[in-house]
Design a protein around this nucleic acid. Structure first.
Lengths: 147, 147
DNA sequence: TATTGTTATACTCTATAACTATA
DNA sequence: TATAGTTATAGAGTATAACAATA
């Protein structure tokens, strides 16, 4: 990132976790969405495609829970990716209500491009941190989320 | 937080800063907005009120830049707070185009209540981290934003 | 009876452009 | 001419409720 420190950065709110997360997240989203436009994806559709490429064979329900999105939003995201031939829905192995979201070869190719672009954004976003600090940040965020 | 670790948390995306920030920010917003409903505020209006209470006499432009919001959004937020008598707009000291946003005594009172509620949410959100780790997280986020 | 995916709807947030008044 | 605030509008994201198929 590298925003210049505003006069207001001395206010108490500049230590509120909520504001810090909001600002860093917002800035990252701008970078990511700008970069992902090259492959006609947005952060959301990218994250669904990325999980479809993971080999974990996620159901739509799992995607919704993991991405902190409503199941109905997953429907729209998967619809979009499916219409472009980047993912397919497969019926669940044991439960016929479930739909597993899998990437097609075309989806894998787009994902590889997109992932490289997002990695570059991440480096830009965390330019103020060295590699150790970035790893610490990742670990702390993971721990705050999952203990 | 204390979400249970989904099966998908082993996917590569679970180390993406973008996803980690999005999830922690989204979870925090839910907590904050739920708590702030008691004083009829939302995260956005709270952050404007908080800066109006800071003693730094922020202009609307400074609020927009610092909160990563568009100036036009600040207008609506200040309008809402002003109609409730929580803040007032004052003409800029040197530049008559500018408007300084200041809290009224009523605004200060509501802010005190709200700030206590938000602090409690923050503790809940960071329950998985001890005090040192929470301080480290804050410092890393600040550094990523402002260097 | 409960759950998965789906549809529908309303609300909030985000992004842009244009206007006015001052500088 | 440039900037601060304002208005207006469209698009993206969020939150809810209800329904069909399946468990």
């Amino acid at each position: 990132m590298g925003t210049r420190p505003s006069r207001l950065a001395q206010a108490a709110i500049a230590d509120d976790i909520g504001l810090l997360l909001a600002k860093l997240h917002a800035a990252g989203s701008v970078l990511n969405n700008r970069a992902l436009a090259a492959v006609d994806l947005r952060e959301r559709s990218y994250s669904v495609l990325r999980l479809a490429c993971s080999g974990l064979e996620p159901t739509q329900r799992e995607l919704a829970e993991f991405l902190s999105l409503d199941p109905s939003q997953i429907v729209a995201l998967v619809d979009g990716l499916e219409q472009r031939g980047l993912v397919v829905r497969e019926q669940g192995r044991t439960d016929r209500r479930q739909k597993i979201v899998l990437a097609t070869p075309a989806g894998e190719r787009i994902h590889a491009q997109a992932a490289a672009a997002v990695r570059a954004c991440e480096r830009e976003q965390l330019a103020g941190l060295d590699d150790d600090d970035a790893a610490t940040l990742r670990a702390l965020l993971r721990r705050a989320l999952w203990g």
